[in-house]
Computed example of a mutant assay.
Amino acid sequence: MTYKNLVLSRDSKKPIVWDAFFKTDGQQKPLVIFCHGYKGFKDWGSWDLIAEAFCEAYLFFVKFNFSHNGGTIENPIDFPDLNTFAENNYSKELEDLDDILNHLLSENNAFKNEIDFNHITLIGHSRGGGISIIKASEDSRITKLVTWASVSSFGKRTSTTGDLELWKKNGVKYVLNGRTKQQMPHNYQFYEDFKANEKRLNIELATKKINIPYLIIHAENDPSVLFVEAKNLHSWNLNSQLFKISDSNHVFNALHPWLEKEMPSALQKVVTKSISFIKDSGA
């Protein structure tokens, strides 16, 4: 069963749009929550195909848009709301992830009887990997962690990029989206939030705290987040597994839009390895 564009309404906060993919057999299934990356969204490229693959493996798969990713309830694809995008930050993404998890595990979730509350996996891609690492280090409900092409530091992407004084003076800086050609705004509050929560947002410290099974998947030739970042994560938690993908890019050779009926072979390897890891009781 596939449920698209469900809406989690929240008091005094922007709503979260989410999808659920699962077999409606009345059996409780391990919960898998997928976190998209920077300039990403739940319906990007091949993400529906991966959701279907997890569903076929008898997992309860959820993907969602971070509330300030630039999408809207009416149009959750791409970035029609750049004013909201400008107000995003890491703390809001962590709060979003906590709220979607709380909802899925609550009595208000209509699908609660299909979910095994004792088996919860986070999967995060790119920046979403960093968010997932921090969340897994803080929340004892998470039982497994998988990161795809994850960043290993928020600091170097936040405090050392561009002219901080100019950013502060102008109140905003812009990053070009190469696909949509939009100038994506980042208000200075992004940096202020990072500095105010710098210890919590330290991915190295969070990785060292993780004591659950952790799988790191990364393309050896990733041009966006270099493979050395995967090696960093593995070195900080030697109990983790590092799985290398050859001949692939940052999104495992997918693109948006993805018009094929099958996912690219590199992404298929990622999905197959991830499902095996999640279902392995000894992992």
Rank of each mutant, 00 (worst) to 15 (best):
N89R: 07
I73V: 10
K92V: 06
N202I: 07
N89P: 04
V270Q: 14
A53G: 05
S12Y: 13
V17K: 07
N239M: 04
L215T: 01
Q189D: 15
G282E: 15
K112W: 06
K209Q: 12
G162M: 03
H218I: 03
D193S: 13
K29H: 15
E114H: 10
Y188A: 03
Y90G: 06
K273D: 10
H186W: 02
N239K: 15
I131L: 12
N118E: 13
L8S: 04
T161K: 14
I210V: 01
Q182G: 09
Y214V: 02
S91V: 14
W18F: 15
L255Q: 15
P264W: 15
V225E: 09
D98Y: 00
E107L: 11
M263C: 05
E229P: 02
E262R: 13
D139R: 09
P80W: 13
A51Y: 05
T143S: 11
Q268P: 02
L101G: 07
P257V: 14
I216C: 07
G45W: 11
H186C: 00
F194M: 03
M184R: 10
T147Y: 11
E93V: 03
F66I: 09
N113F: 11
V7I: 12
H186Q: 14
I210S: 05
W18C: 06
N232P: 02
F61L: 06
K199Y: 12
E87R: 15
W167E: 03
R10F: 03
S281R: 15
E165H: 09
N5C: 06
S67G: 02
V146A: 07
L164T: 01
P80A: 15
T207Q: 08
D11T: 13
D280R: 12
K92R: 11
P213M: 12
S9P: 01
W44K: 03
F85D: 00
T72L: 09
W47S: 01
E165I: 05
A206S: 11
L201G: 04
F85P: 03
R179A: 02
H125S: 01
L201K: 09
M184P: 10
I73H: 11
K4H: 14
G128A: 12
S274L: 08
A254W: 08
L267A: 05
I134S: 07
F227C: 04
S265M: 12
Y214L: 03
I212P: 04
L166V: 08
P15F: 14
G155N: 14
I115L: 03
E192G: 01
H119M: 08
K261W: 09
S224F: 00
A254F: 06
N197L: 02
